[in-house]
Design a binder for these strands. Structure first.
Lengths: 104, 104
DNA sequence: ATATTCTTTTCACTTTAAGTGAAAAATGTT
DNA sequence: AACATTTTTCACTTAAAGTGAAAAGAATAT
Protein backbone atom coordinates (compact mmCIF):
# COMPACT_ATOMS: atom_id res chain seq x y z
CA UNK A 1 0.00 0.00 0.00
CA UNK A 2 2.68 2.49 0.96
CA UNK A 3 5.84 1.94 -1.06
CA UNK A 4 9.29 2.80 0.13
CA UNK A 5 9.89 5.83 -2.02
CA UNK A 6 6.90 7.65 -0.54
CA UNK A 7 7.62 10.01 2.25
CA UNK A 8 4.42 10.90 4.06
CA UNK A 9 0.66 10.75 3.80
CA UNK A 10 -2.30 12.99 4.56
CA UNK A 11 -4.58 12.14 7.43
CA UNK A 12 -7.55 10.85 5.47
CA UNK A 13 -5.45 8.31 3.61
CA UNK A 14 -3.90 7.08 6.84
CA UNK A 15 -7.27 6.91 8.59
CA UNK A 16 -8.72 4.87 5.75
CA UNK A 17 -5.73 2.58 5.76
CA UNK A 18 -6.08 1.98 9.49
CA UNK A 19 -9.83 1.70 9.29
CA UNK A 20 -10.49 4.53 11.70
CA UNK A 21 -12.04 7.95 11.57
CA UNK A 22 -9.62 10.80 11.05
CA UNK A 23 -11.03 12.25 14.27
CA UNK A 24 -9.51 9.28 16.04
CA UNK A 25 -6.06 10.32 14.84
CA UNK A 26 -6.65 13.85 16.10
CA UNK A 27 -7.78 12.28 19.34
CA UNK A 28 -4.55 10.30 19.71
CA UNK A 29 -2.59 13.43 18.99
CA UNK A 30 -4.13 15.16 21.99
CA UNK A 31 -2.37 12.51 24.10
CA UNK A 32 0.78 12.95 22.04
CA UNK A 33 0.57 9.33 21.01
CA UNK A 34 1.41 10.35 17.49
CA UNK A 35 3.11 13.48 16.18
CA UNK A 36 2.79 13.84 12.40
CA UNK A 37 4.91 16.46 10.73
CA UNK A 38 3.27 19.58 9.35
CA UNK A 39 3.44 21.58 6.21
CA UNK A 40 1.55 24.65 7.19
CA UNK A 41 -1.31 23.35 9.26
CA UNK A 42 -1.67 20.18 7.30
CA UNK A 43 -0.52 16.93 8.83
CA UNK A 44 1.71 14.40 7.09
CA UNK A 45 2.23 10.94 8.53
CA UNK A 46 5.53 9.17 7.91
CA UNK A 47 5.87 5.41 7.47
CA UNK A 48 7.10 5.27 11.05
CA UNK A 49 4.03 7.10 12.23
CA UNK A 50 1.85 4.66 10.35
CA UNK A 51 3.66 1.57 11.64
CA UNK A 52 3.37 2.81 15.16
CA UNK A 53 -0.32 3.61 14.75
CA UNK A 54 -0.92 0.17 13.29
CA UNK A 55 0.71 -1.41 16.30
CA UNK A 56 -1.24 0.79 18.69
CA UNK A 57 -4.46 -0.23 16.99
CA UNK A 58 -3.56 -3.87 17.39
CA UNK A 59 -2.89 -3.41 21.09
CA UNK A 60 -6.14 -1.56 21.54
CA UNK A 61 -8.53 -3.35 19.23
CA UNK A 62 -7.20 -6.88 19.20
CA UNK A 63 -5.82 -6.98 22.72
CA UNK A 64 -8.21 -4.58 24.41
CA UNK A 65 -5.65 -2.26 25.94
CA UNK A 66 -6.58 1.35 26.59
CA UNK A 67 -4.76 4.55 25.74
CA UNK A 68 -3.65 5.13 29.29
CA UNK A 69 -1.93 1.75 29.47
CA UNK A 70 0.03 2.52 26.35
CA UNK A 71 1.11 5.80 27.88
CA UNK A 72 2.08 3.99 31.09
CA UNK A 73 4.26 1.57 29.15
CA UNK A 74 5.87 4.41 27.26
CA UNK A 75 6.56 6.29 30.47
CA UNK A 76 8.11 3.22 32.00
CA UNK A 77 10.22 2.79 28.87
CA UNK A 78 9.19 -0.82 28.90
CA UNK A 79 10.55 -2.64 25.95
CA UNK A 80 8.22 -5.37 27.09
CA UNK A 81 5.71 -3.90 24.79
CA UNK A 82 8.15 -4.57 21.97
CA UNK A 83 8.67 -8.26 22.58
CA UNK A 84 5.96 -9.28 20.13
CA UNK A 85 6.25 -6.14 18.11
CA UNK A 86 6.85 -6.54 14.37
CA UNK A 87 10.50 -5.91 13.53
CA UNK A 88 9.94 -2.74 11.60
CA UNK A 89 7.86 -1.17 14.34
CA UNK A 90 10.54 -1.38 16.98
CA UNK A 91 12.42 1.57 15.61
CA UNK A 92 9.31 3.65 15.24
CA UNK A 93 8.45 2.93 18.81
CA UNK A 94 11.89 3.74 20.16
CA UNK A 95 11.73 6.89 18.18
CA UNK A 96 8.49 7.80 19.88
CA UNK A 97 9.95 7.02 23.25
CA UNK A 98 12.58 9.66 22.56
CA UNK A 99 10.17 12.21 21.13
CA UNK A 100 7.65 11.87 23.89
CA UNK A 101 10.14 11.93 26.68
CA UNK A 102 9.68 15.67 27.02
CA UNK A 103 5.94 15.56 27.34
CA UNK A 104 5.11 12.79 29.76
CA UNK B 1 -3.35 -3.89 59.38
CA UNK B 2 -2.68 -7.51 58.47
CA UNK B 3 0.04 -8.96 60.66
CA UNK B 4 2.28 -11.81 59.65
CA UNK B 5 0.76 -14.53 61.76
CA UNK B 6 -2.60 -14.15 60.08
CA UNK B 7 -3.34 -16.49 57.27
CA UNK B 8 -6.29 -15.26 55.26
CA UNK B 9 -9.17 -12.81 55.29
CA UNK B 10 -12.82 -12.74 54.28
CA UNK B 11 -13.90 -10.71 51.30
CA UNK B 12 -15.58 -7.84 53.14
CA UNK B 13 -12.47 -7.12 55.18
CA UNK B 14 -10.29 -7.14 52.08
CA UNK B 15 -12.71 -4.95 50.15
CA UNK B 16 -12.76 -2.42 52.99
CA UNK B 17 -8.99 -2.46 53.20
CA UNK B 18 -8.67 -1.82 49.46
CA UNK B 19 -11.44 0.74 49.48
CA UNK B 20 -13.57 -1.12 46.95
CA UNK B 21 -16.89 -2.84 46.90
CA UNK B 22 -16.81 -6.58 47.46
CA UNK B 23 -18.60 -6.89 44.14
CA UNK B 24 -15.47 -5.51 42.54
CA UNK B 25 -13.50 -8.45 43.88
CA UNK B 26 -16.05 -10.87 42.50
CA UNK B 27 -15.76 -8.99 39.24
CA UNK B 28 -11.98 -9.42 39.12
CA UNK B 29 -12.42 -13.08 39.85
CA UNK B 30 -14.51 -13.52 36.71
CA UNK B 31 -11.37 -12.55 34.79
CA UNK B 32 -9.29 -14.82 37.02
CA UNK B 33 -7.29 -11.83 38.13
CA UNK B 34 -7.48 -13.10 41.68
CA UNK B 35 -8.15 -16.59 42.98
CA UNK B 36 -8.87 -16.64 46.72
CA UNK B 37 -8.92 -19.99 48.42
CA UNK B 38 -12.22 -21.43 49.58
CA UNK B 39 -13.55 -23.08 52.68
CA UNK B 40 -16.89 -24.33 51.45
CA UNK B 41 -18.16 -21.53 49.26
CA UNK B 42 -16.62 -18.82 51.34
CA UNK B 43 -13.58 -16.99 49.99
CA UNK B 44 -10.40 -16.37 51.93
CA UNK B 45 -7.77 -13.98 50.63
CA UNK B 46 -4.12 -14.61 51.48
CA UNK B 47 -1.55 -11.87 52.04
CA UNK B 48 -0.28 -12.58 48.56
CA UNK B 49 -3.76 -12.11 47.14
CA UNK B 50 -4.07 -8.83 48.97
CA UNK B 51 -0.66 -7.54 47.88
CA UNK B 52 -1.44 -8.39 44.32
CA UNK B 53 -4.85 -6.72 44.49
CA UNK B 54 -3.28 -3.63 46.02
CA UNK B 55 -0.84 -3.43 43.15
CA UNK B 56 -3.56 -3.98 40.59
CA UNK B 57 -5.57 -1.17 42.11
CA UNK B 58 -2.58 1.12 41.86
CA UNK B 59 -2.12 0.29 38.19
CA UNK B 60 -5.79 0.87 37.52
CA UNK B 61 -6.68 3.76 39.76
CA UNK B 62 -3.45 5.71 39.94
CA UNK B 63 -2.12 4.90 36.49
CA UNK B 64 -5.38 4.48 34.62
CA UNK B 65 -4.71 1.04 33.17
CA UNK B 66 -7.63 -1.24 32.37
CA UNK B 67 -8.22 -4.87 33.25
CA UNK B 68 -7.52 -6.07 29.76
CA UNK B 69 -4.06 -4.47 29.76
CA UNK B 70 -3.17 -6.23 32.96
CA UNK B 71 -4.28 -9.50 31.44
CA UNK B 72 -2.21 -8.74 28.33
CA UNK B 73 0.89 -8.16 30.43
CA UNK B 74 0.27 -11.34 32.36
CA UNK B 75 -0.17 -13.32 29.15
CA UNK B 76 3.04 -11.92 27.78
CA UNK B 77 4.76 -12.87 31.00
CA UNK B 78 6.20 -9.41 30.97
CA UNK B 79 8.19 -8.75 34.04
CA UNK B 80 8.10 -5.20 32.86
CA UNK B 81 5.10 -4.74 35.00
CA UNK B 82 7.23 -5.71 37.94
CA UNK B 83 9.97 -3.15 37.48
CA UNK B 84 8.34 -0.66 39.80
CA UNK B 85 6.48 -3.26 41.74
CA UNK B 86 6.98 -3.26 45.53
CA UNK B 87 9.41 -6.01 46.55
CA UNK B 88 6.87 -8.12 48.36
CA UNK B 89 4.46 -8.11 45.46
CA UNK B 90 6.84 -9.65 42.98
CA UNK B 91 6.37 -13.12 44.35
CA UNK B 92 2.63 -12.79 44.49
CA UNK B 93 2.66 -11.72 40.90
CA UNK B 94 4.90 -14.51 39.72
CA UNK B 95 2.69 -16.85 41.60
CA UNK B 96 -0.27 -15.57 39.65
CA UNK B 97 1.57 -15.91 36.40
CA UNK B 98 1.96 -19.61 37.17
CA UNK B 99 -1.59 -20.10 38.38
CA UNK B 100 -3.17 -18.28 35.51
CA UNK B 101 -1.09 -19.89 32.83
CA UNK B 102 -3.70 -22.58 32.41
CA UNK B 103 -6.57 -20.20 31.90
CA UNK B 104 -5.41 -17.53 29.51
C1' DA C 1 -11.89 39.74 -4.31
C1' DT C 2 -15.12 36.12 -3.90
C1' DA C 3 -16.26 31.46 -4.21
C1' DT C 4 -14.91 26.85 -3.58
C1' DT C 5 -12.51 23.18 -1.56
C1' DC C 6 -9.97 21.01 2.04
C1' DT C 7 -8.28 20.50 6.71
C1' DT C 8 -8.85 21.39 11.37
C1' DT C 9 -11.49 22.12 15.40
C1' DT C 10 -15.50 22.04 18.43
C1' DC C 11 -19.75 20.16 20.36
C1' DA C 12 -22.58 16.72 21.39
C1' DC C 13 -23.75 12.17 21.02
C1' DT C 14 -22.97 6.76 21.15
C1' DT C 15 -20.86 2.71 22.80
C1' DT C 16 -18.51 -0.16 25.94
C1' DA C 17 -15.75 -1.42 30.16
C1' DA C 18 -15.58 -0.85 35.08
C1' DG C 19 -17.90 -0.59 39.01
C1' DT C 20 -21.85 -0.58 42.27
C1' DG C 21 -26.73 -0.96 44.62
C1' DA C 22 -30.35 -3.86 45.66
C1' DA C 23 -32.40 -7.87 46.02
C1' DA C 24 -32.77 -12.86 45.25
C1' DA C 25 -30.63 -17.35 45.95
C1' DA C 26 -27.83 -20.43 48.45
C1' DT C 27 -25.56 -22.03 52.46
C1' DG C 28 -24.53 -22.28 57.34
C1' DT C 29 -25.92 -21.72 62.28
C1' DT C 30 -28.70 -21.47 66.49
C1' DA D 1 -37.83 -23.31 61.22
C1' DA D 2 -35.80 -18.77 61.70
C1' DC D 3 -31.90 -16.01 61.16
C1' DA D 4 -27.45 -14.40 59.52
C1' DT D 5 -23.92 -14.44 56.06
C1' DT D 6 -22.03 -15.04 51.57
C1' DT D 7 -22.71 -15.46 46.82
C1' DT D 8 -24.96 -14.48 42.62
C1' DT D 9 -27.85 -11.97 39.38
C1' DC D 10 -29.94 -7.88 37.29
C1' DA D 11 -30.00 -3.41 36.28
C1' DC D 12 -28.10 0.89 36.70
C1' DT D 13 -24.16 4.65 36.77
C1' DT D 14 -19.89 6.64 35.29
C1' DA D 15 -16.06 7.62 32.40
C1' DA D 16 -13.06 6.66 28.36
C1' DA D 17 -12.92 5.87 23.41
C1' DG D 18 -14.64 6.99 19.36
C1' DT D 19 -17.60 9.29 15.85
C1' DG D 20 -21.08 12.51 13.20
C1' DA D 21 -22.11 16.98 11.93
C1' DA D 22 -21.19 21.32 11.40
C1' DA D 23 -18.52 25.60 12.23
C1' DA D 24 -14.09 27.84 11.64
C1' DG D 25 -9.72 28.66 9.20
C1' DA D 26 -6.67 28.40 5.41
C1' DA D 27 -5.36 27.50 0.51
C1' DT D 28 -6.49 27.60 -4.40
C1' DA D 29 -9.23 28.60 -8.47
C1' DT D 30 -12.22 31.54 -11.06
Amino acid sequence: MFNNTDKSYPIELVADFLGVNSRTLYYYERFRLVCPSRRGRKRYYSKQDISWLEYMRELMYDQGMNLRSIIVLIKRRDNVILTRCPEDVVNSFKNYLMKMDDYF
